[in-house]
Amino acid sequence: MSEAPPLTGEELRQLCEFLYRRTGMAFDEAKRYYVQRRVTERMGATGEGAFPAYFARLRADAGGEVEQLINAFTVNETYFYREDHQLRCLSRDILPERARAKAPGEAIRIWSVPCATGEEPYSIALWLLENWPEVDAYDVEIVGSDIDTRALEAAQAGLFGRRALMRLSPDLVERYFTPAGPERWRILDDLRESVRFTSVNLVEPASTGAHGRFDVVFCRNVLIYFDDASRRLAAENLYDALVPGGYICLGHTESMSRISPLFAVRRHADAIVYQRPREGSRD
């Protein structure tokens, strides 16, 4: 197989503009090497020898090429403590603020959607036990939801391989998991039982609506794959699933600015997050 020739300056610009408009991921000449590698990979996989033909395929989204290209640019694998700066933001800024808004005895509700095979909602539980000093003072309810019921079964089972645990210290693994065969670990029952799993379709208002309202939603690494219509609807569904003043965290390559004007953007020390305005607020 002959290597595709390097992209010309104009070709690179065109591709970057397409990606920027479609996903908000911003690359330029300075990232040429990184972009070129991924485009070459996709051109090889689609059998397109020339950039113009590949770009036409991409624009027409033939064979789901947009998703394929996004996949090439993002990490599709989920793991414990992924993007932990958001977890830090959760315990340092978001939860103290939400807790102040609660009546005595009222639960703080957190939704991990999509949760895939469970690493994300379990990470939230684990992080809070380790890093939120007030965790004992409140009832915290964590729900993990996904459209993929096989992923949900795996989440429920709570068995993980080495790669999923790679960001956890040996001490955390030791304290919260038990070995369950070669290269397998099972999460402790206490933790397993602290997350409730449900199936959901993010673009179905009745389906998201059935989950009630949350203080914090983690919706990471899924909206980037949706088209404009689905993103808009999913964002509206999530807005509806938040209490006024509640927060949504997106993946680090994602931004609400491409999706919906419903939320106000907030900068905390550790992360940019989006907030459903409190009632009567002008934001």
Partner: peptide, 16 residues
Amino acid sequence: MPLIRKPSPAAPDAVP
């Protein structure tokens, strides 16, 4: 364990 699993009864309804 302070993390709870049961659905909170007061989950407000989004439907008018």
